[in-house]
Design a protein around this nucleic acid. Sequence first.
DNA 1: TCCGTTGTTCGATGTTTATGGAACATCGAA
DNA 2: TTCGATGTTCCATAAACATCGAACAACGGA
Lengths: 117, 117
Amino acid sequence: MRQAHHPELGEITLTKVMAALSDPIRVGLVRVLADGRERGWGELRAPVAKSTLSHHLRVLRDAGLTRTRQEGTRCYVVLREKDLQARFPGLVRTVLTAAETDDVGGHVSVREDPDAT
Amino acid sequence: MRQAHHPELGEITLTKVMAALSDPIRVGLVRVLADGRERGWGELRAPVAKSTLSHHLRVLRDAGLTRTRQEGTRCYVVLREKDLQARFPGLVRTVLTAAETDDVGGHVSVREDPDAT
DNA sequence: TCCGTTGTTCGATGTTTATGGAACATCGAA
DNA sequence: TTCGATGTTCCATAAACATCGAACAACGGA
């Protein structure tokens, strides 16, 4: 479980971001993270196997949409809001608004409270 | 070459639109069409075989991003601006802005003037 | 040190995708 | 009707992708 790679600002590409946001589960994950709060991996609820969830979080991370922090044996995920806003102004926000109106990724949620950060 | 299918407003989904815009060539095509003018198929220049170009235009059409009109033996393509704006406000515009800053799809162009519409 | 928790990684599988070339269908013009 | 231009469709291929279960690695606690 070595520290994962995160692209820096200049390495974030539009097509990768778009591709990352073309899957309902990943859109759902971004929606859950949209309030800017950091979430524990284990808090995230999606109707897929954990290996699949791990895969999706990796795609988001590789695309530059999220940042993962490791603390002891568990991980915390956060949306890279500022970076994305700097790179592609308004993009994430616009997509999120669209996602809300259609409830894309609505089957993804967060288990509140367990032992809050 | 029968008349192709176009999704109606309500059938346009966010994930399909995002997927359609996750390829540089397709982004380039949308950029070329961004001024709202209708373009002839043959005007479009992209560094791929014509069967591949046909494929990309089909993906855009199926996603609801463009509309194709047939006139005699040739086709004309136009961006479904209003529909997209109605469905996902600001989305296409935001993506286009991002695409411009990075020159995504810059290898796609339009042969001006041949015998303008 | 042994064990349980937590995510990642590794096959394996089936689907979708991008790509090009060749064949085809359609239509206007000669 | 025959021909050329215009796109689409078919086929084949290689790569990417979503998915799962199992094995694994890292860490904290008992």
